[in-house]
Design a protein around this nucleic acid. Sequence first.
DNA 1: GTTATTACTTGCATATTGCAAGTTATTAAT
DNA 2: ATTAATAACTTGCAATATGCAAGTAATAAC
Lengths: 141, 141
Amino acid sequence: MSKIMKSKFRSNCPISSALDVIGDKWSLLIIRDMMFADKKTYSDFSKSAEGIATNILSSRLLMLEQLGIINKGKLEGNKKTNIYSLTQRGQELLPIILEIAQWSDNNLNEHLKDGAKPFVNKFKSNKDDFIKNMYQYFATR
Amino acid sequence: MSKIMKSKFRSNCPISSALDVIGDKWSLLIIRDMMFADKKTYSDFSKSAEGIATNILSSRLLMLEQLGIINKGKLEGNKKTNIYSLTQRGQELLPIILEIAQWSDNNLNEHLKDGAKPFVNKFKSNKDDFIKNMYQYFATR
DNA sequence: GTTATTACTTGCATATTGCAAGTTATTAAT
DNA sequence: ATTAATAACTTGCAATATGCAAGTAATAAC
């Protein structure tokens, strides 16, 4: 039972292929936590509100790492805790996630967390600036 | 065995809730076909390159209809063929799909269909205009 | 040295998806 | 008017993915 991804793409359509890679139930939520909640460690992710199972978390982190979406590293002086971080490729998922948030705000807003609304509004008012600022923020941590 | 959706949201996070709704393996591909390939009927969708199983197609169309993302109708004089179309809510998924296409172009381009590249490039060059034109196009058909 | 933490793995139950083969109601062809 | 073909499904079962509870091994903290 190898952990190696099967890399089976359903077609050569770019949209379909992207969904083959990040279109599962959990990957984008892990990315979201890294982007907006500054989560970095296995136990950080396992504590998120949606309650990802640890076996799934483990397999997704490995998959995302193999895809070059996240990096796995350590802090000096600590051999226990793994620190996961977004690669460039992972950071570039930001616009997708923000558009999802906006759609949700427009169409499912009964489910919208109170704290998220100003965030989405700021994105709507100037998307390019908002994204640029977020990339800046990613770079400084 | 009712076909009624379970409406179980994992959390009150807008991103998570949106993914609970459109984050499965097939929904966005059906939407993609409606947007870019002008597909409208059950058999149109069942013929797409990714090969969706008919039982899954059936359950997704019902779910998308119940969510107000698509409409199900008929043409006058034809009692057989169902015509599915995007609602406003469904059309608003366009920016998400385009950002996914762009990410794929930047990061998985070995899988990119030849024909898709100019399309993505045009989107990149002016996103707002591109989206506006697409909405216009949706309105005229 | 004992206990707690971190990052997992394992086994098994449940849920979702995939595949092949029906079924029913129309519409088209002869 | 039959017969055949098409459209939109449903059904049953296999395969895969996810969910849940419990372990385990290696640090790190006390």
